[in-house]
Amino acid sequence: MATLLLVRHGRSTANVAGILTGRTPGVDLDSVGISQAERAAERIAAVPVVAVVSSPLARCRQTAQIIAEHHPLQTQLEPGITECDYGQWQGRPLKELAQEPLWSVVQNQPSVAVFPGGESLAAMQARSVEAVRRLDAEVEAEHGAGAVWVAVSHGDIIKSVLADALGMELDLFQRLTVDPGSVSIVRYGTTRPEVVATNTDSGDLSWLRAADPVGDAQVGGGAGPESAARS
């Protein structure tokens, strides 16, 4: 099956300011975010990527462009992996939002959280998982089972996709961490999804060239990739 590299955009100016950016236009990477995107791009450059897909928002497009420069590819925009619609929460300081009654629901029972004037976290997960699985099937159909592709998105989006692949209830997805510029790896196998890595920010990825299609789980854990450089 194809291999999906989920990349969170690099740090943005709003991340530094402690603002819930949401879909606010014109929010760019800061200098640290550019460095994080460049580091992710250098790691991914060792892999023959066949597609780079991005959320339409600027911070993701900027990250995706840095990654795509290492490959003869044009970035494809996918609305299905855009940021959650936080509605009336968008643009407000996180410290202020933490005082809202809904904050506790978002933290402890996200499956029932609905942002005022915006989207529910359940709806966010449903459309992002649908988009990722649809794109993964398209990549495999066009490029074969060994294909590797990149999706550049946002923290909550990637956490929800990872939770789905792990078979976790959405109410548990806040247990996952997805840092700016991190790379997580998922492969949708013939038997089940396989979460190969989460929230990595360093380490060689060239071993993905020899990744085998996912089938039955290896009893005892298997031998792993040959490359000792994996981390």
Rank of each mutant, 00 (worst) to 15 (best):
Q62A: 13
P25H: 11
Q125I: 08
H154T: 10
G80T: 09
V152C: 14
I34W: 04
P79N: 14
R187M: 06
S160G: 14
I81C: 01
C60A: 15
D28V: 05
L172C: 07
Q218A: 15
E119H: 13
Y188I: 07
S206E: 08
Q99K: 14
H9L: 07
M168G: 06
S202L: 09
D212K: 15
E119L: 04
W89P: 00
Q109E: 15
K159N: 13
Q65A: 15
I34F: 06
N108V: 03
A228R: 09
R11P: 08
G144Q: 09
S31D: 12
D164L: 05
Q74M: 11
R92S: 08
N108Y: 07
V7F: 02
V16L: 14
N108R: 13
G117S: 08
N15M: 08
Q109R: 12
L77C: 08
N15P: 12
H143W: 03
N199D: 13
H71Y: 10
G155P: 15
T63H: 04
E83D: 15
G220C: 11
G181A: 08
G10W: 00
G181F: 00
S104M: 09
E140L: 03
G118Y: 03
A229P: 10
V27Y: 01
R8P: 03
G215C: 03
S111W: 02
K95Q: 10
E142V: 04
I158F: 10
Y86A: 11
V132Y: 00
G221R: 12
P79Q: 13
V114A: 10
Q76P: 05
P225W: 00
H71L: 12
A64V: 04
L172D: 15
G33V: 06
G117M: 10
P25Q: 13
P193D: 10
L170D: 01
L57S: 01
M124C: 11
Q88E: 12
V214H: 02
A141H: 15
T24A: 06
D156K: 09
A2E: 04
A14F: 14
D179C: 09
Y86V: 12
R92I: 11
R59F: 05
T3C: 13
T82Y: 00
S231T: 06
G203A: 06
V132M: 05
P180G: 12
G146P: 01
E142I: 02
G10M: 06
A228N: 10
E140D: 12
V16T: 10
S182W: 00
W103V: 14
A113C: 15
H70E: 08
E38T: 04
F173K: 01
